[in-house]
Design a protein around this nucleic acid. Structure first.
Lengths: 136, 136
DNA sequence: TTACTTGCAAATCGTTTGCGATATA
DNA sequence: TATATCGCAAACGATTTGCAAGTAA
């Protein structure tokens, strides 16, 4: 879907954006839906999906496209990396500066026009690591 | 699914592994299914999925878990990165050495137990770049 | 007023799973 | 022979979409 010039700031769109900006978690579309429902009980899941799509195309939020599971969204539009728990799926920001020159390394040796990159760390969150350790 | 100790090398499993090893593309499960069918017309898509899962848990192949789309598989079990065409979805190996110390950077500043990372470059493949350029 | 957006429900699509039959070790 | 694996078809879950009604500008 292309973002239309005449994009309208509807109540639904505004509430979704505000909730994402307030919280620094990385929810799935369904989690966003659960957040919004107390405020707008008649909103549909389809509307949530459509608005998350539009907002990410506008650059207001980010769609987190790493790992082959469900999509996650991030109210922080700045470029940054994430770390994911391989056991429970928890997702947090990774404490690392964005590597802005990493792309130049491959530009000369690929036929692709390189335009960006995604980096995700995999591991065990504190809770899952503790649980795993206790079974050793 | 956990890999069983008594894993059997069935005809189906062997053919799938050999095809993945021979070719250096990065097929989806359905593409593998299309490859195998001429050789084994009665094989089912479910069998292909099950075998790709087992083979990747054995470390014989890799499941490529980047970007939120469909899963891809790689007959090369060595750690390496990929580059994806944002227009057509084409996926190739990225010409870059594996960054084996990148994880140590964040270990001290996260509560996670870091165990790996995934890096994917995004861009336009030569074909899509040419097409895009011609529209400017 | 106009056409973008919504709510609803059905459709889509990749993937997984239950089951009885088959074949590997 | 024992049981891992198969083929088949149905189920599943996340996401998308068609449509008539609603609403922002």
């Amino acid at each position: 879907m292309l973002v239309n010039q005449n994009m309208r700031m509807t109540r639904q769109r505004k509430v979704i954006l505000e909730l994402l900006r307030q919280r620094n978690t990385h929810p799935s579309a369904d989690e966003v839906y659960q957040w919004v429902r107390p405020l707008m009980p008649r909103i549909s899941l389809g509307t949530v999906y459509r608005n998350l799509e539009v907002l990410s195309e506008l650059g207001e939020i980010q769609k987190i496209e790493v790992s082959g599971t469900i999509k996650r969204f991030d109210g922080n539009p700045e470029k940054h990396y994430h770390i994911r728990c391989m056991n429970c799926g928890r997702l947090d920001d990774a404490p690392m500066n964005f590597l802005s020159n990493i792309e130049s390394e491959i530009c000369s040796s690929t036929d692709y026009k390189v335009m960006g990159h995604r980096l995700e760390f995999i591991g065990l969150c504190p809770e899952c690591f503790t649980k795993a350790s206790s079974r050793w």
